[in-house]
């Protein structure tokens, strides 16, 4: 069983009632290369069940200003896919349970070749891969390459997804599916819980995998509301905004950022667990 499947199974059965997964997103090496490893461990400590690690790309077409700037900060350190692999390898030395998925754009994977990417990603301890600009319709070589290494290909669904495309996705996806809760880019403000509930129910007719919901989740309250109608909550821009507090260069600066992010996640965790 993959780490992702294992984690979702545990959340369902451990404890006195089923729990929903909390998935924070941070960009690797944002704002400094030194912060990401301790931050990952701290996020697990604060209640994260799965970590989504952003791989920076120069042209993040689907992202709003917050994640765009995160990518620019990360790229100032020349962060490469190999840096991300090393980071996850380090993380795995002390945490063998928490699933890590990488999220980014296709070209940094394309330049390595799908097979070589998949092999190195799996070796480093990565569990799933979400590539924003790789839809199922183009994934004839990509999906088998990931699956041959035991990696879960994670795909996006949107308010505009049709039954035909949801079915096509169901044929290739594993791990979980990521429902983008609104029309727009990452970091947009509004969230309509009723429409999320309706769409998640529609998706469930076609897909057995856990459904994570992201985009527009900004505080404990919205996290709890989304958790009530899904299996997992992804929180990105809200915590990435904290990376601008300081440069993350010194131990002290890093601990301030880590503390702020941990507090947000803890409050989301307790709100979600009160359901």
């Amino acid at each position: 069983m993959s780490r992702l499947a294992q984690r979702f199974a545990e959340l369902k059965t451990q404890g006195d009632k089923p729990k929903k997964a909390l998935i924070p997103y941070v960009m690797a090496s944002d704002p400094s290369p030194e912060i990401t490893l301790p931050l990952m461990h701290a996020m697990v400590e604060a209640g994260a069940d799965i970590i989504e690690l952003g791989v920076p790309f120069s042209d993040p077409m689907a992202d709003g200003p917050v994640i765009q700037l995160a990518a620019e900060r990360s790229l100032k350190h020349n962060t490469s896919m190999h840096d991300v692999f090393s980071l996850v390898s380090e993380f795995r030395k002390t945490d063998d349970k928490t699933p890590v998925i990488v999220m980014g754009y296709l070209n940094p994977i394309e330049v390595m070749g799908y097979q070589s990417f998949a092999q190195q990603a799996a070796t480093s301890g990565i569990d799933g891969v979400l590539t924003v600009d790789m839809p199922p319709v183009e994934a004839d070589e990509y999906v088998p390459a990931l699956k041959s290494q035991g990696l879960d290909p994670i795909f996006l669904l949107a308010p505009t997804s049709t039954p035909a495309r949801i079915k096509k996705l169901a044929e290739v996806a594993s791990g979980f599916v990521y429902y983008v809760s609104l029309k727009g880019v990452t970091g947009a403000a509004t969230l309509d819980v009723a429409s999320v509930e309706t769409k998640v129910a529609e998706i469930r007719q076609f897909i057995d995998l856990p459904i994570a919901v992201g985009f527009g989740i900004s505080d404990a309250d919205s996290a709890a509301k989304v958790a009530s109608c899904s299996d997992a909550v992804v929180v990105g821009s809200t915590i990435v905004k904290k990376m601008t507090i300081n440069s993350g260069k010194t131990e002290q600066e890093r601990s301030i950022i880590i503390k702020e992010i941990s507090e947000i996640l803890s409050s989301m965790r307790s709100a979600m667990d009160r359901l």
């Binding site: 077409m61 689907a62 296709l106 924003v132 600009d133 790789m134 839809p135 319709v137 183009e138 795909f155 996006l156 669904l157 949107a158 505009t160 997804s161 049709t162 495309r165 983008v180 029309k183 727009g184």
Partner: peptide, 14 residues
């Protein structure tokens, strides 16, 4: 060529 776009754009492209 192809359609290497996010799902959020797929409906509009179709």
């Amino acid at each position: 060529g192809g359609i290497f776009a996010s799902e959020t754009l797929m409906q509009a492209l179709e």
